[in-house]
Design a protein around this nucleic acid. Sequence first.
DNA 1: TCAGTGATTAGG
DNA 2: CTAATCACTGAG
Length: 170
Amino acid sequence: MIIRLNRDYFSRDVLEVAPTLPGKFLCVSGKEGITGKHMITDVEAYRGEEDEACHASRGMTHRNKIMYNKGGFVYMYLIYGIYWMLNIVTAEKSIPQAVLIRGITNYEGPGRLTKFLNLDGTYYGEDVCESERIWIEDHGLNIDVGRGKRISIDYAGSYWRDIEWRYYVI
DNA sequence: TCAGTGATTAGG
DNA sequence: CTAATCACTGAG
């Protein structure tokens, strides 16, 4: 049984959503109507203005304002001038949280998977609960999930740097 | 190990 | 306007 993840799913706190995303399927409808479905293998949680590693830690900016929307919207941003990062916003409106999708089967790495799936800035603000070109499905898989520290956030204070908010398929 | 790459951001 | 920074990757 396949169920598309809906608003209720993404409206919860990121620490409830993120651990359940590994094993779900990221679905993208391609240019010729080809739909690819890829199991999510690796994610990280970014949680509110108090989280020093979160882009919202210094308040709302033009780039991060989609994070202040209700859950289910896509937050894309360019890093190092080259790589697009795919995030899904969580929680209720005005609470800035998001999940970074770090890996899918055969394409580990947040910059690698967006390149493979042709995801770029045009997806910023897309609603994965309603969109016809990007959405997420639950295929009923029961997956063992490991956890660890988030990657490449050395600029954050030790508490936030060391907290284990990365979740991945074992 | 390390350079590439350009949008974003804070600060003047 | 300027300059520093960056939730990364692949080549060597």
